[in-house]
Lab assay of single mutants.
Amino acid sequence: MGFKLLSKLLVYLTASIMAIASPLAFSVDSSGEYPTVSEIPVGEVRLYQIADGVWSHIATQSFDGAVYPSNGLIVRDGDELLLIDTAWGAKNTAALLAEIEKQIGLPVTRAVSTHFHDDRVGGVDVLRAAGVATYASPSTRRLAEVEGNEIPTHSLEGLSSSGDAVRFGPVELFYPGAAHSTDNLIVYVPSASVLYGGCAIYELSRTSAGNVADADLAEWPTSIERIQQHYPEAQFVIPGHGLPGGLDLLKHTTNVVKAHTNRSVVE
């Protein structure tokens, strides 16, 4: 069995187990497998329904001669939608809004960016022009300005110390501490036991640490421990890039980060 097929099978099995364990909360999309990078042309966006009122959005972007996937989250909030992270750029984010209108038909009224990198804030200006209120932590807003990236308009308070959590509509926002970046936030959907790890969490097929220019490698494993301790009931975990899975993604990420750190020390 090929690795790609095995990865998709694991996603399907995880979703099936969740649907059985929580039949009222989960209505997993039966329309197909989780979209992969090879299936999404740059400039297009796919939506994948995880649970009743919960979707991931998947886009792709060219970077350094390669094409990478990027995940975000959409959560229903009454007759409105909360968006977590842009679709990595203005063109993708405009396509995301169009796809949401086509498939869901509810307005996106608020959006949260989970850290300051372009795959999370690139497209904020498109959201703002569409009347979406954009939010991020003060740290993310400051770092985005320093980096020359787009800056969300509103500040999220109460997320300055490791372990801080605040309720934001249908989700809980959690600051686990520094990891992929010093400002990275985690998003949890309690009604569906869905954990969105953003770039602080890796997919299972990833074996290298990737972009760690703004990471705190020493603190990252401790931050992941905080996530595990705060959300032990999480059933569906979405990484910032690639295929979702279960809580095993947290341990896998820790292993990859520690291996990278150990290699760096040896070198």
Rank of each mutant, 00 (worst) to 15 (best):
M1K: 14
G2A: 13
K4E: 14
L5W: 10
S7D: 10
K8S: 05
S16N: 04
I17Q: 02
M18K: 04
D29A: 08
S31N: 03
G32D: 12
G32P: 15
P35K: 07
S38W: 06
E39P: 15
A51C: 05
A51T: 05
W55Q: 10
I58D: 14
I58Q: 07
I58F: 14
I58A: 06
S62C: 06
A66T: 12
G72E: 00
D77Q: 12
D79W: 13
L82A: 09
T86M: 07
W88I: 03
W88R: 00
A94Y: 10
A98E: 11
K102N: 14
Q103I: 04
G105F: 03
P107D: 05
A111E: 14
V112W: 12
T114N: 00
H115C: 00
H117V: 00
D118R: 05
D118P: 07
V126R: 08
L127Y: 02
R128T: 11
A130R: 13
Y135K: 01
Y135W: 05
S137I: 06
P138D: 06
E145P: 04
V146F: 09
N149R: 11
E150C: 14
I151M: 02
H154I: 10
L156R: 02
E157A: 10
E157N: 15
G158C: 08
S161W: 06
G163Y: 10
V166D: 13
Y175V: 12
G177C: 00
A179L: 03
A179K: 00
T182D: 10
L185F: 13
Y188M: 08
Y188P: 00
V189L: 06
S193E: 07
V194A: 07
L195K: 00
C199T: 01
C199D: 07
Y202C: 04
G210V: 11
N211G: 08
D214Q: 15
A215K: 14
A215E: 11
D216V: 10
A218Q: 04
E219F: 15
T222E: 07
T222R: 09
S223R: 03
E225G: 10
E225F: 15
Y231E: 02
P232V: 09
P232S: 13
E233A: 08
I238E: 12
G240M: 02
G246M: 09
N255W: 14
N262G: 07
R263I: 03
S264F: 11
V266T: 12
E267S: 12
